[in-house]
């Protein structure tokens, strides 16, 4: 199996180790990994904020960048959701691009989805001592319908205790533009999320969406709370 990696801009810039861990894990299970150098941003922030004319050229770029890929894997639920669902919307009046958008849409997978559904591997041999909980990112859960997949992967990590927090599906309050337009509401929301994480007793919160993790993790650090926000790939790479 050979896949082409899609690295979201936030991971590229702020958390490149997530990308490196994805490569490490995939290679370990025998998947060959390519990187499409030309891709930048999938256009999601623009689409969601209503700037569709700005999103279209970025969507076209992304489609072109992955034209020759057989399978695309992205460690980000929201980018996959953008490609899978919203590209079809962006090009609904453009049959030529719509066909290509469909093609990309069908071959793009979120990281945990790829592991469980495509190559059907849940035990990667990872090991970490500690207690973690899982945050259901909205685009992963409501957008892609993934909930058992990441949990299945987490449960296979050796020496790790997995606990559910209260309302794991509650939005963390990031919402892209939302947290810049209404930081006061976003703060109240992340505060509630963090309260639930702390009540679970977990030492780390795991997720499949970097923007939520930056929101939750950044807030935890700002408050000086010693709980970490970990990308699933960072967890699965522990000890392997």
């Amino acid at each position: 199996m050979r896949i082409t990696l899609f690295i979201p801009c936030l991971i590229d810039q702020f958390h490149p180790q997530v990308g490196k861990n994805v490569v490490h894990i995939l290679k370990k299970v025998g998947v060959e990994v390519d990187f499409a150098n030309e891709h930048t941003c999938c256009g999601q922030p623009f689409f969601n904020a209503g700037y569709w004319k700005k999103a279209i050229p970025l969507a076209k770029r992304t489609i072109k960048a992955f034209k020759s890929a057989h399978v695309v894997v992205a460690p980000s639920g929201s980018c996959v959701h953008m490609i899978r669902k919203h590209y079809l919307e962006l090009f609904r009046d453009n049959p030529v691009w719509l066909d290509q958008a469909h093609e990309l849409s069908e071959k793009t997978y979120e990281f945990s989805e790829f592991l469980i559904k495509v190559i059907q591997v849940d035990d990667l041999g990872a090991s970490l001592k500690g207690k973690v909980t899982y945050h259901d990112s909205c685009q992963v859960l409501h957008g892609l319908g993934l909930s058992s997949e990441p949990r299945q992967l987490i449960r296979k990590v050796r020496n790790l205790e997995f606990v559910e927090m209260e309302r794991p599906d509650l939005c963390c309050g990031f919402g892209g533009f939302f947290s810049f337009k209404f930081p006061h509401i976003a703060e109240a929301m992340v505060e509630e999320k963090v309260k639930n994480i702390l009540a679970s007793g977990a030492e780390a919160v795991v997720g499949c969406e970097i923007s939520c993790l930056m929101n939750i993790g950044g807030y935890l650090k700002h408050r000086g709370i010693p709980v970490r926000a970990l990308h699933l790939a960072d967890l699965l790479a522990c000890g392997i």
Binding site: Q13, P16, K20, F35, F180, P183, A186, M214, G218
Partner: peptide
């Protein structure tokens, strides 16, 4: 600052793509 008021932001690192060129 609307973001940094409530979040500690991790500094930008050497990007994945820059590192990929090296480790690939």
């Amino acid at each position: 600052n609307r973001w940094s008021r409530h979040h500690e932001v991790a500094p930008l690192e050497k990007t994945f793509r820059d590192q990929w060129r090296r480790f690939s």
